[in-house]
Design a protein around this nucleic acid. Structure first.
Lengths: 145, 145
DNA sequence: CTTAATGTCTCTAGCAACTAGAGGTTCAAG
DNA sequence: CTTGAACCTCTAGTTGCTAGAGACATTAAG
């Protein structure tokens, strides 16, 4: 049986985050020692690794909750899991497109900065005037995280 | 003079967001009409467009606050603005690298999904077992937004 | 001139996904 | 037996907004 600290180290998830996952029901309530400390077995370890890995891949906790409930009922078709992963891929590609556009524009801003005073600083100018930025990032777009 | 609604439409920033920016001091306190409604001139319009554009480029509100205070004192060197933009570029590139890795892994997961049952679903398996994922996304990495 | 619809006001609370801190208890090593 | 690390619960804070309640302002139509 692992204490929360050991589990934290092994899974690469911080201690308060583990407690948080328990609180929101992503992890089951842990067994407790005589002194009320949480104890974990390999099942929770696996579940936590799953969560960790999915978080690395950018899945939201909600999506992870769905994936976990799917994996708890292994007899059904995996179409739903596939669907979640595909939606995630679409989101990732969308962010990629936008980030590449940002990269290009930031490069342009920086390269053209003449190292003069703020008064003719390209960075400030481009931010202040959308027309100066040759790139097509729609003003209606949301910021890319 | 524009009402907050017109400003919102023109700048592409939602009404509550404008009030929020005022609250946190990114925008100055607005003039008021006889009936206590906010009124804006072109100066605030420009400032809001600046903020909007910088948010599009992924700058945090803190970075934007710095950029704005720089642009308020146009006589100094633009090195600081350049610095902020460069840091932003580094962050963007970092996110790009991680997102590309995620894209590759998600593609692999999905392609290999045999449309069978959950029991042999590639998506679930890869998430549950880090060794199955041929890609090098360090378990210590943070999730990419 | 009145009425209705829309716009605006303030205020509080909520979202994701944690993180930080206070103040107290338990455990393992020496 | 003591010390110090690890653990407990609880509350509050983070970022960048968004949603809703209940009240007042403004505008367009009849």
């Amino acid at each position: 049986m692992l204490t929360i600290g050991k589990l934290s180290k092994t899974a690469g998830v911080k201690v308060p985050t583990i407690r948080y996952y328990e609180e929101i029901g992503l992890l089951p309530e842990a067994e407790r020692s005589a002194g009320n400390q949480r104890l974990y077995g390999t099942a929770t370890m696996d579940r936590l690794s799953f969560i960790r890995h999915a978080r690395d891949l950018g899945f939201t906790l909600e999506a992870i909750r769905d994936l976990l409930s799917l994996s708890d009922t292994p007899d059904q078709s995996c179409a739903a899991a596939d669907q979640i992963a595909k939606a995630q891929l679409v989101a990732v590609r969308d962010r990629l497109v936008r980030l590449r556009a940002l990269e290009v524009e930031l490069e342009r801003m920086i390269v053209q900065c003449a190292q003069g005073t703020i008064a003719d600083c390209r960075v400030i100018k481009v931010l202040g005037n959308h027309d100066l930025c040759s790139h097509e990032h729609n003003q209606k777009d949301q910021a890319v995280q």
